[in-house]
C-alpha cells in the first residue's frame, strides 16, 4: 500500500514491461529534445535571438524619429509608416495602441524592434497567430519577411489595464 512502508527490500530490478515502456519514453524524450535545437538551424520561425536592453524613454525617442522620417499618412489618429526595403522597423506598444500602422513589401526582410513604453504587452499577429512577449526596457528584435500580401492585425494578449481589449494594431503587406 502507498500508505504503508514497503514490506521488504524494495530496490528491485524493473519488470520487462516496465523496461520497454521506460525505454520508449526515453527515446521519445530524446526525439523531442533534438527537435528544439534542430529547428534553430532548419526552421524558418524562431523567437528573438538578440537580447537587447533599451530604456522606455530611449525607445520612445527612436520610435518617434522612425515614424517622423517615414510617415505617409494617418488612420484613426495613428500614423501610417512605410519604411524603405530592409530598414529597421520600430513598433511601440503603449496603452492601448500599437504605433505606427506599417506598410510593408512582400518578400522583403525587415528587422523589427518591438518594445513597450509603459506596461507589459503581448504582440499577437493575426490571423497568423504569432505571439511574442513585449517587455518594457527590453527590445524584442525579430527578423520578419512577409511571405503573403494582405492586411494583418496585431492584438494585445497580455493584460495591460482596463482598455487592454481595445488595443489593436495593423500591418499592411503589399506585393
Amino acid at each position: 500500500m502507498p500508505i504503508t512502508s514497503p514490506e521488504t527490500y524494495w530496490w528491485k530490478p524493473a519488470d520487462k514491461q516496465e523496461k520497454i515502456w521506460i525505454t520508449v519514453a526515453i527515446i521519445w524524450c530524446l526525439i523531442l529534445f533534438t527537435m528544439m535545437p534542430l529547428w534553430h538551424f532548419v526552421g524558418g520561425q524562431n523567437p528573438s535571438v538578440e537580447p537587447m536592453k533599451i530604456r522606455p524613454d530611449d525607445f520612445e525617442k527612436v520610435a518617434s524619429a522612425f515614424i517622423e522620417k517615414y510617415k505617409v499618412g494617418e488612420e484613426a489618429g495613428i500614423p501610417v509608416v512605410k519604411p524603405p526595403d530592409g530598414a529597421d522597423v520600430y513598433l511601440k506598444g503603449q496603452m492601448w495602441n500599437w504605433v505606427p500602422i506599417l506598410e510593408l513589401k512582400k518578400g522583403v526582410n525587415y528587422k523589427f524592434h518591438i518594445s513597450s513604453v509603459d506596461l507589459m504587452h503581448g504582440f499577437g499577429l493575426q490571423p497568423l497567430n504569432m505571439n511574442f512577449q513585449i517587455v518594457p526596457g527590453h527590445d524584442n528584435i525579430l527578423n520578419l519577411t512577409p511571405s503573403t500580401s494582405g492586411t494583418f492585425h496585431i492584438i494585445c494578449n497580455e493584460f495591460c489595464g482596463v482598455g487592454h481589449h481595445t488595443m489593436v494594431g495593423k500591418i499592411v503587406v503589399k506585393d
Partner: peptide
C-alpha cells in the same frame, strides 16, 4: 486559442477598438 484568441481578454469581438478587427 489555436486560432489566436487571447487570454485575459474582455471582448474577443473587438467592438470598442479604433482599428476594426474580428476573428474567424
Amino acid at each position: 486559442g489555436t486560432l489566436g484568441s487571447p487570454r485575459r481578454h474582455w471582448d474577443v469581438t473587438f467592438a470598442d477598438s479604433i482599428i476594426p478587427f474580428s476573428f474567424d
